[in-house]
Simulated scan of single mutants.
Amino acid sequence: MSVLYTLGLFVITAVAEIVGCYLPYLWLKKSAPVWVLLPAAASLALFVWLLSLHPTDVGRVYAAYGGVYVSVALLWLWGVDGVRPHLWDFVGVAVTLVGMSIIMLAPRG
């Protein structure tokens, strides 16, 4: 499976997880209607299914996915919550992406 496909799958997976967690947050903290829990549950089910599509061992997928999740969450913070990340947020994202790359791209034999 190509690196770009895997990265794209990670990004879509992260968005599904974030939406699935963000909607209940809106219900609990921002007075959103209770019906937002239905698309939240669907989004979390999609998240789980997307994780199952990755071609490698599940533990490795979860570990590497974490780096992409951190990146997408920071973009969510900026784009949806309207909070501009700090320099150290970007440094942290860079570190997690390096870690993710090592986990996913290291030669195995």
Rank of each mutant, 00 (worst) to 15 (best):
S2A: 11
L4M: 13
Y5C: 02
Y5S: 09
L7Q: 08
L7A: 13
G8P: 00
G8N: 13
F10M: 12
V11T: 12
A16K: 03
E17H: 02
V19N: 05
V19M: 03
C21P: 01
C21Y: 06
C21H: 10
Y22L: 08
L23P: 15
L23I: 10
L26I: 08
K29V: 09
K30Q: 15
K30R: 15
K30C: 10
A32M: 02
P33K: 11
W35L: 11
W35R: 08
V36G: 03
P39L: 11
S43G: 12
A45M: 14
A45Y: 14
L46M: 12
L46S: 08
L46P: 00
V48G: 09
V48P: 00
L50H: 03
L51M: 06
S52E: 05
S52A: 13
L53V: 09
L53G: 01
V58Q: 00
R60S: 04
Y62K: 00
Y62E: 00
Y62M: 02
A63D: 05
V68E: 01
Y69G: 00
S71P: 00
S71G: 14
A73T: 10
L75S: 12
L75Q: 07
W76Q: 08
L77C: 10
W78Y: 12
W78N: 06
W78F: 14
V80M: 07
D81V: 00
P85Y: 08
P85R: 05
P85M: 09
H86Y: 10
L87C: 04
W88C: 04
F90Q: 02
V91R: 01
G92T: 06
G92W: 12
G92C: 09
V93R: 00
A94N: 03
V95D: 06
V95R: 09
T96I: 09
L97K: 01
M100L: 07
I102S: 01
I103F: 08
L105K: 01
A106V: 03
P107F: 10
P107D: 11
